[in-house]
């Protein structure tokens, strides 16, 4: 049976993983390869590397991280942050990434989704969306790291992006993110029911039942979390064992 995916997100800055400092057993908790190994042992289903490097010149460092990780850890790797051209997508794939996630660049020029899907396959083109509630069951798309509202409706934008070639949606609720009060169920469900491609829910994880809720009530196909794993509030194995005990199929 197909399984729901649990995906840790690692923030990469200048070639180092930041915030990922709570694997006490690691000699160097900022080393992306060591962290990726640890997550592999814990049966993470994929890894997302989010490049939070501020300057464009330093962007190459995330490719080096991917390259080193891909040589040792054999699971799907996604690169997000700073991917703004088809050349960026190609460079990430050549470094060993399997997928790239696009956010601001896709809003500014949606044709990149079509072009990337044609060249590399839609499974490489993940659309990341930062969504903020703006009314009853209505959400607005934000770009530039959540700083800039676009006036676009989240569900309409995602439907358009899937028609163009986005093969998967990484959906972050700005309202839920950081609250630890749970994923945004209505948002996730609205998107998951509106498109045929898989939806990864992000933002708000704080308790084990939050994962269960968004994968069942929210109809998400996968969940992404950063801080709860980084700070070892629970391990991936704990999340998976909880989900399995509630009847959700996971890879353990």
């Amino acid at each position: 049976m197909h399984t729901k995916r649990i995906i840790p997100c690692l923030d990469v800055k200048n070639g180092r993983v930041v915030k990922g400092t709570n694997f006490v057993e690691l000699k160097d908790a900022g080393d992306p390869v060591a962290l990726a190994h640890q997550y592999d042992v814990e049966k993470a289903d994929e890894l997302v590397f989010l490049d939070i490097t501020a300057s464009v010149e330093q962007r190459k460092s995330v490719l080096d991280v991917i390259n080193r990780t891909a040589g040792e850890v054999f699971m799907p790797l996604t690169v997000g942050g700073g991917i703004s051209t088809v050349a960026d997508v190609r460079n990430a794939l050549n470094a060993g990434a399997d997928k790239t996630s696009l956010n601001t660049a896709a809003v500014k020029d949606p044709s990149i989704l079509a072009e990337g899907a044609k060249l590399f396959g839609s499974q490489c083109m993940v659309l990341a969306v930062d969504a903020k509630r703006c009314g009853e069951n209505k959400w607005e798309v934000y770009i530039n790291g959540g700083r800039t509202p676009t006036g676009k409706d989240v569900v309409e934008w995602i439907q358009q992006a899937v028609r163009l070639g986005a093969g998967e949606i990484l959906l972050t609720s700005m309202d839920a993110d950081g609250t630890k009060n749970g994923y945004d169920i209505p948002l996730t469900r609205a998107v998951a029911e509106a498109v045929s491609v898989p939806v990864i829910a992000s933002g708000g994880a704080g308790a084990l039942e939050h994962f269960y809720d968004v994968l069942t009530l929210g109809k998400a196909d996968a969940v992404l979390a950063a801080s709860v794993f980084h700070y070892k509030e629970f391990t991936i194995r704990q999340v998976k064992e909880y989900l399995r005990s509630k009847g959700v199929e996971v890879r353990i």
């Binding site: 197909h2 399984t3 998967e168 045929s196 491609v197 898989p198 890879r251």
Partner: peptide, 8 residues
């Protein structure tokens, strides 16, 4: 969902 994406 299609594609069938993930672990089986």
């Amino acid at each position: 969902k299609i594609p069938h994406m993930g672990w089986n």
